[in-house]
Design a protein around this nucleic acid. Structure first.
Lengths: 247, 247
DNA sequence: GTATTATTGTCACAAGATGATACAATGACT
DNA sequence: AGTCATTGTATCATCTTGTGACAATAATAC
């Protein structure tokens, strides 16, 4: 393995974060009627991972998650929800960490802080796909969206962390205004319904869905959208800021 | 403050736990139509706190919480749910820690592991009040039940941790079988309803409640209970192990 | 013994929410 | 103008929930 002086310096200059604790972020987006998730691939490896990071000594938990989110997507003020802490006693992954860092030309010395047990706090984020500008971190070659049904196998226990996020998202679907955060400013009723269907993994009766969401009085009806399709043009909707709140 | 050699030895011999991470447990019980919470009072102080502890290096998070629970109540296989992580950057309470330990005759030296920032993982537990045998820990003078409406002010951010547990309990009331864990083996419909009413903090229409819970087919009807009251005797019920599961 | 009282188990009806289906409206294409 | 696919809405049946009424009954008062 060749050494990588730049990254090494960056890594070694970094003040040690809060020990034993890491953050993992499941970042959901919605595009082309598909629920998508942002994943990193580590340089010179086939290892895929959820975006994550550590907590600075003088940083709130929530702020650390928001920082990771901004670094990966360029977005601020993102909808973020802490959903579970993963604390298995076997959460130490020395061999994998060595491989990951080797991919960036870094040799982890014995006693390096990564080679310890970590608990990881899971956050899920809902973002407007069209606004995100995914950006890899220093150790990864890519940061890209993956459809839910084509997710590669992930490192560590990230598969489990992802599944748990998905279950939580499903369970929260009715209570939290999930559409508000995943959809663009304006959208059609069909897009809104598709979002719900892909999250739930099942079809919903069209007319009942419309009746229900309109009955909540959180949508404003805008102009019609001229689709170019050989059929009636749908209205565009947006969330009504008077009755719908961000969280 | 006088030194306390026994406790000091115990404390110093203890291998260091997982750094930066603690656990706090909100232990709910139900008795005499009141929702109750188990609190510790530190020796020679007026400081009240939620039972808590640390995670051993080779211990699962969940097991650490179960251990704390067993130490305070004598009960195993308790219903436990992780509900939130409290990670404010200001979660360091040096002055209070000194006072708490002074109460047990212990001087915390500079650099002691308690004098750091901690994140705390909140668990709430539901237990059968009649089976618990509350027991103080090494630093506390008492471990007792408090009615929800007579809770004293708590140390650190424990007031907030308690409120968040209560909100989560309310939100989960319909989905999780909360009665199963808080009630004794057999109970009347009235007791069952009172439990729900105290958790929700509002009255429920009697006949609707009965229709609803019986409709779930999770209760077995047993013999009548002779109360001694001048009225019709209520049936006793228990949870049906065939249709009701612990979690 | 008999009447009284408070509480319990159940039923009946109204109001509201949900599921399933039908149908007219409409933008683009032939 | 006619066809087509999709959209917005109305309708009806079904299920759920809110509200109140009523008979049953264990203890007490007389």
């Amino acid at each position: 393995m060749t050494d990588n002086p730049d990254l090494k310096e960056y890594w070694e200059a970094r003040p040690l974060p809060l020990p034993s604790v890491s953050i993992d972020c499941v970042i959901f987006g919605f595009h082309a009627n598909q629920l998508k998730i942002l994943l990193l691939r580590y340089k010179n490896t086939d290892f895929f991972a959820l975006p994550g990071g550590f907590i600075n000594q003088d940083e709130n938990l929530e702020d650390a998650a928001a920082r990771v989110l901004e670094e990966r997507t360029g977005l601020q003020h993102i909808y973020l929800e802490q959903y579970y802490v993963f604390g298995d006693k076997n959460r130490r992954f020395d061999a994998t960490h060595h491989e990951l860092m080797n991919g960036s030309g870094i040799m982890l010395r014995p006693g390096h802080f990564l080679l310890n047990r970590f608990i990881s706090i899971g956050y899920y984020a809902l973002i407007d796909f069209s606004k995100a500008r995914p950006k890899p971190d220093a150790f990864s070659a890519s940061c890209e969206w993956y459809d839910l049904d084509t997710i590669p196998t992930l490192i560590f226990d990230h598969d489990f962390i992802l599944q748990k996020a998905l279950h939580t998202l499903r369970a929260n679907l009715d209570e939290k205004l999930i559409g508000l955060n995943l959809l663009p400013e304006t959208f059609t009723m069909n897009e809104f319904q598709s979002l719900y269907e892909t999250i739930l993994g099942e079809k919903i009766a069209r007319s009942n869905f419309q009746r229900k969401v309109l009955g909540l009085h959180m949508l404003k009806r805008l102009d019609k959208k001229i689709t170019g399709g050989a059929h009636k043009a749908p209205y565009l909707y947006s969330f009504d800021s008077k009755t719908a709140s961000k969280s």
